[in-house]
Design a binder for these strands. Structure first.
Lengths: 413, 413
DNA sequence: CGAGGTGTTGACATCGTTGACACGGGCTTG
DNA sequence: CAAGCCCGTGTCAACGATGTCAACACCTCG
């Protein structure tokens, strides 16, 4: 076959469809005389079933008002011709695609990958497709990427805010709702799904305090990052709660990479009065800290890590983590979005997703020396008291999304 | 505001557009008398610029045949009205969406996440969006998911084959090309991007042989998985090459989880004549094996792991890996797809993406005892000879995609 | 000066689907 | 028995863009 590709592409085929021949819809004659497979449309089905296109549409859309016999005839024709509705045409007609847009920082990041996975699953269950786009490390790209999804008429958006301002979405929200995840948007009121970073920082620190530690280090990335700020605030709050003075020399922030975190941790531990425990406030930090401790045989230092990471449970001692559960966040965000699509005028909601502390060993180490904790009992945990600590309890996945605390925040008055 | 949502949704607005008023396009009067933001269309721009819709279309699409002055007037109007073309309408008209579909096993898997990330980046550069769907562990879902993307008129597909047969795509390929990744499809000839599993298995094994090992274990998951089969074949080929008899007791397959791998490795090492080195043929296996070795102080056993994993380079000794580079695979697949879109009739191509061995320590350990290798030199590597070994050389990322070996496989004759 | 070419612009139909509305027949109801 | 209703079905136009083709203006050259 050395025909030109014309014989295959042949899009505008003005062949007169003639009598209701079953095959005319499947194979179509080109002007050049070739038979080419053609898309089967509603009208083709209509012709074969001897009804109007509208009726076929009704059958396809499960409209009640169709006689069983007609329905059967149409379904037969649909099956015979292998008709598949063109969702692009439908989208144009109804003014919105059955697609949601997801904007994340980076898909290569396991956190966002798992988030995306959860969103995709939820969407798929509702027959919606998902378009993902990653912004990378250039916050200004956010709005461009959001635009590129809006022009594709997505029904709604889930966005990890990176931009300095989200005012550009103000006019759009009424038509295309946006749910923000992980952080709150700037300059705009909108639905959001957050991790309870403050409570998490508090819980991690409290956990170490409960195991007798009094000198607890904090390892974190840039303070520009609101997430880090909140976790640090939680750390400080837990210390204050127990009347432990804030020792600035125990706080090491600004570690953007695992390597930097490793160095920061080295410095922390080699100081005059080193910490007996460290709260590593994100995965990159942990990936610097943990190998350092293992490599240098300092497995006596207690560690609680924010973000679970591969191998965390295989090490000796296994690493106690605050588990983020990106799936839960994704499910909650998708859920919020679908609810929003059903009621565009309800007030904006912020969903706070609980995190849970997974004790595995490293966080339950007791400080060395005579200063051993005053606590008795193997674990030393007090009964849960604060709401923050309630959230720490492991929750079955199914219920967790619904169990998330909701705090309505009024839309502009 | 307690208006019913009608005042906001107001989609079919039959307000007569009247004279060419700039604002009529942006704010529109509802029958109820509310001003609502409305979508700006080509016709709105046309009216404001006093040209036809077609001319606006030409300007938007960078058509040359427009007078500079007209173009300027139109661009002015576009800017004034904030016009954004409706890509769904365009897609309907041209018969295909500027979207590609990506079907993976699971987005939560870091391999697929990074693959997705790369595909998305490549697509984004070309102005295409990406719809992702994951199949999960039910191969039968593959075709359903592919269909759901096809009805959305995606321009092309990148698919991780899971289904037993891909014959269902035979009729579709001419209209919507498919590039398979990671594995070859069944029952169909198509473009594909593969990792050179055989060469990788060979290279890993040869690397250990070159460091003096003669008893090398193989740790892998189910043999149902063609990927595992190929890596095992590479392992056997490398052994045969050196005249080392195949000792079945050194091959442990069927380990589906890290835990199972750990147990399998334990059995391997506790046997009467344990291996001095182990080739762990995937990440899950390594996540079982490596902590086992570290935990039991058996850091004398040499290890080469297929798939890099977090912390692999932080351990002591750091783990020598065969690096997969999902990004490279994703880029190659996207690239193949875009080329295919430009020439639907070229013969199918299989692109084999090179992998590289990253020596970090664990793979360069020499066997204990008097049987030390006959090789001299610190590394003991021979000059690269086979094509497989050529691929092992680290390649700069930019060139690697183009440097991938291509083997054309004729389309049906 | 007219024929022919080149290049800009617009009218119109069309992509495949669905919402609004109309029509006719059978049913209920006063 | 007439008025009114519901029900199944069809007609038509529209969603917003673009391909085709023709109209027209302007230029060049014989």
């Amino acid at each position: 076959m050395t025909e030109t590709s014309d014989s295959q592409r042949c899009v505008p085929c003005s062949f007169d469809r003639g009598p209701p021949d079953r095959w005319a819809a499947v194979l179509r004659l080109c002007p050049k005389g070739f038979l080419v497979p053609a898309r089967v449309t509603l009208r083709d089905v209509a012709r074969v079933a001897a009804v109007s296109a509208k009726t076929v549409s009704r059958v396809v859309n499960q409209d009640e008002h169709v006689t069983p016999s007609t329905r059967a005839r149409v379904q037969r024709a649909i099956a015979d011709l292998g008709f598949q509705p063109n969702l692009v045409a439908r989208s144009l007609r109804v003014g919105r695609a059955d697609v949601i847009g997801l904007v994340v920082e980076s898909l290569a990041d396991p956190f966002f990958a798992r988030l995306t996975s959860a969103v995709e699953q939820e969407a798929h269950e509702r027959g919606l497709a998902v378009m993902v786009s990653s912004v990378g490390h250039v916050p200004e790209r956010e709005s461009v990427i959001v635009q590129s999804l809006l022009v594709r008429q997505v029904a709604g958006l889930i966005v990890t805010p990176m931009s300095q301002s989200h005012a550009y979405l103000a006019g759009t929200q009424q038509r295309t709702p946006v749910v923000f995840v992980d952080r709150l948007p700037e300059d705009i009121t909108s639905d959001a799904v957050l991790v309870d970073d403050l409570a998490a920082g508090e819980a991690a620190t409290r956990h170490l305090l409960d195991h007798g530690h009094r000198r607890i280090g904090f390892l974190g990335s840039e303070l520009r990052n609101p997430t880090t700020r909140l976790r640090l605030a939680g750390y400080r709050r837990a210390l204050a709660e127990r009347g432990i003075p804030d020792d600035g020399s125990l706080v090491a922030v600004g570690a953007g990479s695992a390597q930097q975190a490793r160095e920061a941790a080295e410095k922390l531990l080699s100081g005059p009065r080193p910490p007996t425990a460290i709260f590593s406030s994100n995965m990159r930090c942990s990936l610097g800290l943990v190998p350092l401790l293992h490599g240098s045989g300092r497995t006596d230092v207690a560690v609680v890590s924010f973000d679970d990471f591969p191998m965390a449970d295989s090490l000796e001692p296994a690493v106690t983590v605050i588990d983020h559960d990106p799936e839960l966040i994704g499910r909650a965000a998708a859920d919020r979005l679908f609810r929003r699509l059903e009621d565009l005028d309800a007030p904006a909601e912020t969903v706070v997703v609980p995190v849970r502390l997974v004790p595995r060993g490293s966080g339950e180490l007791r400080p060395p020396g005579p200063s051993g904790g005053r606590d008795s009992g193997a674990d030393g945990r007090r009964p849960p008291a604060s709401p923050a600590e309630r959230d720490m309890r492991p929750a079955p996945r199914q219920e967790a999304a619904d169990g998330a605390r909701r705090s309505g925040r009024g839309r502009r008055p």
